[in-house]
């Protein structure tokens, strides 16, 4: 059994006119790096939130590792949201202890190594760090877990190119090779080289789910160029 994520008829609507995710059925395998791509408002974050139990689907079901989203799946999913979800008043060392307490797959040693490589002192409070460093700390926390599924929502948005390189390096060098990584972004050019598969979303619908090689072979284009063609205004 190679399926890791199973979405069946997943829909999220806020009212009859506002359907954020519309009837998505999809099965994602283990051991892949998958780009969740689409323009702003296409439903990427809504789908991710449902996979993490932060939004309740209006219809459909989501299974991860054969289990419906819940306590069990949360123990095996490492999630990086598109916002700062840590309390600024806490010291980084306290946050590390917090992750140690709750995530059995969290490696404090690995987190400390990564922090050291960035010259971030674990004894300082999170609020004293720059925006970029805060995002890096969050990424370090997520990538220090030996999870089955990493879901990274816009990990490279709003950071400079050097920071993007660091973030992508951190993801590639630290994820559990047996795991699947879902990276949501609209900065396709920056992450294209690390992707195995892509999911295109448009207006809440699944527009395409295929491998990167398939796009290159069938369309003779890069993912970025193909994306621009598909989503041309």
């Amino acid at each position: 059994m190679n399926e890791l994520v199973e979405l069946v008829g997943v829909t999220k609507s806020y009212d009859s006119r506002n359907v954020a995710v519309n009837n998505i059925t999809l099965t994602l395998p283990k051991g892949k790096i998958i780009g969740l791509l689409g323009p702003n408002g296409s439903g990427k974050t809504t789908l991710i939130k449902m996979m993490n139990g932060l939004l309740t689907p209006s219809q459909g079901s989501i299974k991860i590792n054969g289990q419906y989203v819940g306590t069990e799946t949360k123990a095996h999913v490492a999630y990086l949201p598109d916002r700062t979800y840590l309390s600024g008043g806490q010291k980084i060392s306290q946050i590390l202890d917090y992750f140690c307490d709750f995530y059995a797959d969290f490696s404090k040693e690995r987190a400390l190594e990564m922090l050291q490589s960035l010259n971030i002192d674990p004894s300082v409070k999170l609020k004293t760090l720059s925006k970029g460093n805060k995002e890096k700390v969050q990424l370090i926390l997520v990538m220090s877990r030996k999870a089955d599924l990493y879901i990274l929502d816009e990990p490279i948005a709003g950071v400079d190119p050097a920071a993007r390189d660091y973030i992508l390096r951190t993801i590639i060098n630290n994820y559990n090779p047996d795991a699947t990584v879902i990276i949501s972004t609209h900065l396709i050019g920056d992450i294209e080289q690390v992707l195995d598969e892509v999911i295109f979303m448009r207006y809440g619908h699944l527009a395409l789910y295929t491998s990167v090689d398939n796009i290159r072979e069938q369309h003779g284009k890069s993912v970025d160029a193909y994306f621009r063609e598909v989503f041309a205004c």
Partner: peptide
């Protein structure tokens, strides 16, 4: 709020 993103993704009921 934003902190809830961590709270609700903890592996606890």
């Amino acid at each position: 709020t934003d902190e809830g993103y961590l709270t609700h993704t903890l592996p606890v009921t």
